[in-house]
């Protein structure tokens, strides 16, 4: 291999080939053909290059109808994720040794890395919060990365009698039920931890601080007007803040759900559109982008859960 400044010869050849493919795909693909047809040229793509027009579906599609339940393609993807993760950890921890083998070492690196990731945020609660954080992170990232396997959203379709067709498996993160289910668990976990640490009434008190209001009423009974008025004013303000606090907790549920759903669905849509417009080539770049977003969204979902949970667990929470 000749070493020149810039790039090596094989890399250069690969680059040339890719550039050529990109040009061909651009010209024969729907995007290029449409533009060129405006100039009067008639270009028809060869049969093997034709990519079907994408049909963007927000809903997950049903694959198997049971009498009381419908198995969707996202549910199948989620089962696949569970099987992959379980298999990995089952074999990694089957015969644990003090001097680890490769698989055990990998699993340990993953878990220890995640623990170190949340340690600065959760401090002493890191070990308590690790299982939830790691499960959310691994679930979301595995859902996202498994979707790179070409059987997803792809070649295997289920054609129904009425002509509708659905891919047999579809990235689980693009189903709002998945993101909503994780968000509900994250929300419930946060609130339950808050209740567990503080107890019921002290936890409610972290929302509604009634101290000022009580002071105001006691002053009112004693007939001191000025402190009574200020006490009542601040008391009602605190009640209002409490309502806002509750709304902010509930909004987290929505923001969790739609952040992940939006990102992942947009990624899928972008991938389909890119594959259609410039066949074969543009999707490579989109895959690179999506692998970054998959990891990022998994991290954001997990770390926000940790932040909210450790906030509600700490003694001076919600100020």
């Amino acid at each position: 291999m000749s070493k020149k400044p810039g790039c090596s010869t094989p890399l250069f050849i690969v680059g040339i080939i890719l550039a050529g493919m990109f040009l061909i795909a651009l010209v024969y693909g729907p995007l290029g053909s449409k533009i060129l047809s405006l100039t009067g040229a008639q270009i028809t793509a060869p049969e093997w290059m034709a990519v079907g027009k994408p049909e963007i579906q927000l809903k997950s599609e049903a694959v198997v109808h049971l009498s009381w339940f419908t198995i969707t393609n996202t549910l199948i993807a989620s089962w696949l994720t569970i099987i992959v993760l379980f298999t990995f950890f089952f074999f990694a921890t089957r015969r644990m040794k003090l001097v680890p083998g490769r698989l055990q070492n990998l699993a340990e690196i993953v878990i220890e890395g995640l623990l170190n990731l949340i340690s600065p945020v959760a401090e002493k609660n890191a070990r308590i919060l690790l299982p939830l954080f790691a499960t959310i992170f691994l679930y979301v990232i595995t859902n996202a990365y498994l979707a790179f396997i070409p059987i997803f959203d792809g070649p295997i379709y289920l054609i129904e009698p009425n002509g509708a067709h659905a891919p047999i498996i579809r990235a689980a993160n693009t189903d709002i039920n998945v993101t909503l289910s994780i968000a509900i668990i994250s929300f419930l976990y946060t609130e339950i931890q808050g209740l567990r640490i503080h107890g019921l009434f002290p936890y409610i008190n972290t929302f509604f601080q009634t101290g000022k209001l009580r002071d105001g009423f006691s002053h009112l009974i004693k007939g001191k007007i000025k402190p009574a008025l200020s006490g009542l004013a601040f008391g009602f303000l605190n009640l209002l803040i409490g309502v806002l606090e509750i709304i902010s907790h509930l909004v987290r549920l929505l923001s969790f759900t739609f952040r992940l759903f939006g990102n992942m669905t947009a990624g899928l849509t972008l991938l389909l559109v890119a594959t259609f417009l410039v066949p074969y080539i543009l999707s490579i770049a989109v895959y690179g982008l999506e692998s970054f977003f998959g990891a990022l969204q998994a991290f954001i979902f997990g770390i926000l859960t940790v932040v909210f949970a450790s906030m509600s667990m700490s003694s001076d929470a919600e100020h």
């Binding site: 950890f89 990694a92 003090l98 699993a107 340990e108 878990i111 220890e112 690790l130 790691a134």
Partner: peptide
């Protein structure tokens, strides 16, 4: 996963 690995 977590329990055996943390223990180890």
């Amino acid at each position: 996963g977590y329990k055996p690995i943390l223990k180890m």
